[in-house]
Every structure is written in structure tokens, then in C-alpha cells.
Simulated assay, not measured.
Amino acid sequence: MLVSSLATGFTTGAGLIVCIGSQNAFVLRQGLLRSHTAMVATVCIVSDVFLIFCGLSGLGFIVKQWPGVIDVVRYAGAAFLAVNAYGAAKRAWQGSGVLDPSTTQGGSLKQLLLTCLGYTWLNPHVYLDTVVMLGSLSLHYDGDEKWHFGAGAMLASAVWFIAITYGARLLLPLFHNPNAWRILDGLIALMMAYLSVTLLVMPLAVIA
């Protein structure tokens, strides 16, 4: 049962984490720039591990009992995404020439840390996926099996963020073309703008 619950946790976690979103777009861009990649991957992984642990510990009831907490994160996240959508659109419009990862810093460590934390902790979906969804699914398991399930989900997060952070360099030959960066930033701007509007107009459903 160890392998079964671990594998189920891994596939479930991967299904929730592996998707097109603002956080993954940010991580991919930093991977392409080779800018503080270890820090970015670590923040994302540690945040997911902590939130999954909270879900398995039964703290999902906080989100269910006080949906206003999610609303606060929802509006803050919408504003955060709107600001970053503007920044990405500006980069796409102006262009930055050929960005050489060996010389491009991609921002200060403090700035990147705060941005990475913003993409992670101001995303209301992360709470619903990790704390509520995984926490609820873990109730199907007893004793150690519940934590094996959680360990599988945590492992999925680690594998995913390491893969897109360090695997992004495989795309570097494409991004020697400045137009590729402009297209990427344009797509990121559209995605973030769409997610920002979605958070504002569509209430988030909390699983009962």
C-alpha cells in the first residue's frame, strides 16, 4: 500500500500542479534567464510542501469555514497579476534585444524573491488545490498511508518545479531570437490579464 498511496499522491499532485498558470510562466522565464533558478525552485517547492502539509493536518477547514480569507487573497492576487501583466506587456511592446542568459541578471535577488512569493501565496487556487483538495482526498487514507499520499504530492511538486526551472535551458537556442522573447512576454501578459479578470469576476468555489 505504500507504493500505491505514494503513486496516487504523485499523480494527483501532478494533475493539480502541472498546468498553464502565472506561477509556472514566471518560473519558466527565470529558467530561461538562468536567474536565481535555485532560489525560485526552492521557494515554490517549500511553499507547496508546507501547504500540502497543512492540508493533510486538517487545516483545510479554515478555508471552508472562512471563505473570506480566500476572497482577500483573490483580490490581492488579481491586483498582483494585473501589475505583472502590464510589465510583461511593456517588455513585449518595447523589446529587449537578444537576452543572453549568461549576462542577464533578471532582477535583484530581493525583487525576485518577493515576486516569486507573490506568484505563490497570492494565488487563491494554490490554497484550494493543496490545502483543500489534497487535504480532502487524503481523508480516504488512514494512518501512515495518508502521509504517503501527501509525500507523493510533495514529490510531484519538487519534480515539476525542478524540471521547468532547469529544463527551460533546452529552449535557449530558440530564445536567441529577440522576437521569441517578445512573443513569450506577450503570451504571459495575456495570460496574467485573463487570470486577473477571472479572479475578479468569477467567485472561487470551495469544496464542501
Rank of each mutant, 00 (worst) to 15 (best):
V201C: 12
I20H: 00
D100N: 13
G118H: 03
G97Y: 04
V206S: 06
A151V: 13
M202A: 14
L134T: 11
I183T: 09
L6R: 00
L113K: 00
W160M: 07
A76F: 10
L59A: 12
A89C: 02
I45F: 10
M39C: 09
V3S: 03
L56M: 11
C19E: 04
I164A: 01
D129Y: 02
D129K: 04
E145Q: 14
S4A: 08
V49E: 04
V131Q: 12
I164K: 13
T104E: 13
Y194T: 06
L2Q: 02
A151F: 13
N179H: 13
N84M: 15
A168C: 04
A163W: 12
A208T: 11
Y119C: 07
F149I: 10
L51N: 05
C116M: 14
A79P: 03
L28Q: 08
C44K: 03
M1R: 05
D185G: 11
L6F: 14
S157E: 08
M1V: 05
F175Y: 06
G77E: 09
Q23R: 06
P124M: 05
L174S: 00
D142F: 02
G15M: 02
V132D: 12
K90I: 02
G60E: 02
Q30G: 12
L172P: 00
L155Y: 03
N123L: 08
T198L: 09
F53W: 12
I183D: 04
S157W: 06
L172I: 02
M39V: 13
N179I: 11
Q111M: 01
I70S: 01
L99D: 01
C54L: 15
R182L: 09
M191A: 13
L139T: 14
G68A: 04
A208G: 14
K64F: 00
L200V: 12
L155W: 05
T198Q: 15
W160I: 01
G21V: 03
G13Y: 07
G21R: 00
S138H: 11
M133A: 15
V98F: 03
A88N: 14
R29Y: 09
G95Q: 07
T103N: 04
G106I: 05
G58E: 01
A153Y: 06
I20S: 01
G167D: 03
L139N: 14
N24E: 09
V197Y: 11
A168E: 03
M1C: 01
T115C: 10
L184I: 11
W93N: 01
Y166H: 11
C116R: 03
W66V: 02
T12Y: 07
F50S: 14
T103F: 00
F61M: 03
V206Y: 07
V132K: 05
V206D: 05
D71T: 14
S57G: 07
G31A: 07
L109E: 01
G21I: 06
L199D: 05
S136Y: 06
G106V: 06
M192L: 15
L190W: 04
L59E: 01
P178R: 12
H176M: 03
A153N: 08
P173N: 00
D144I: 15
Q23D: 10
L172E: 01
